[in-house]
């Protein structure tokens, strides 16, 4: 564990909490892509199958349970409790276009052809693109509420910090994981355009609005 990894985990946790609080306090999930949230729940479910087979640390296990619980709580709020506020007309990304390629790739490029490893690899590939329905939704409506922007910024920072963590681990321990690193770079690159808009607009107190 190094400071970048911890920072990444905390940014991820912060993103999840921001989203839950936004939905809970405003009693609305307007502007949030349920499709992306389904993909994140699927990602955590596939990745943390090892929760009961591999014990790494109390920290790891607790974080896994928190991420899983938060992902399903978000789905519950969006699809059950505040279903009426869900903006499904703008959330039209086809999930199979992301799930099927991620599954296919996981079957071909993995560390080991076993259920737990293929599922882990699938979760890595799927997570890399899971935000696309959300970014697609923002581009379709042309704007995002500030709180949604903060959520996206925290979520993007998480994988960016993980990349720094991987560089650090490579030099300090000789550790690297090509699958996680390449997918992590793809994941972070997807946020670049958003990061630019966030820094140039939202941090200056303006609403995130895409140029017409």
């Amino acid at each position: 564990m190094n400071i970048f990894r911890l920072g990444g985990d905390l940014a991820h946790l912060l993103a999840i909490i921001i989203l839950l609080l936004k939905i809970w306090t405003t009693r609305s999930c307007a502007g949030i892509s349920g499709k992306s949230q389904i993909l994140f729940a699927l990602t955590f479910t596939a990745r943390y199958l090892d929760l009961f087979t591999n014990f790494v640390s109390v920290y790891n296990s607790v974080m896994k349970v928190v991420y899983l619980a938060a992902a399903y709580a978000t789905l519950y709020l969006m699809y059950v409790k505040f279903k009426a506020t869900y903006d499904h007309n703008h959330d039209t990304f086809r999930l199979e276009f992301l799930i099927l390629p991620a599954a296919g790739l996981a079957l071909i490029i993995n560390h080991e052809f076993s259920i737990i490893e293929v599922m882990w690899t699938f979760s890595i590939y799927l997570e890399a693109v899971a935000i696309l329905p959300q970014l697609f939704m923002v581009s379709k409506t042309g704007e995002a509420e500030s709180i949604t922007s903060h959520y996206l910024f925290a979520l993007g920072s998480y994988r960016a910090l993980y990349i720094v963590n991987w560089v650090y681990r490579y030099y300090s321990e000789g550790f690297y994981d090509m699958i996680a690193t390449l997918a992590g770079v793809v994941q972070t690159v997807l946020y670049c355009d958003f990061f630019y808009l966030y820094i140039t607009k939202v941090l200056k107190g303006k609403k995130l609005q895409l140029p017409a």
Binding site: R5, D9, H12, D50, N54, V56, S57, N60, M63, K64, Y67, H111, E112, S114, I116, E117, W120, Y162, N165, F175, D177, A180
Partner: peptide, 10 residues
């Protein structure tokens, strides 16, 4: 053993 024990990331 699988790499997930060494990997230990979230």
């Amino acid at each position: 053993n699988n790499h997930l024990l060494v990997h230990d990331e979230l």
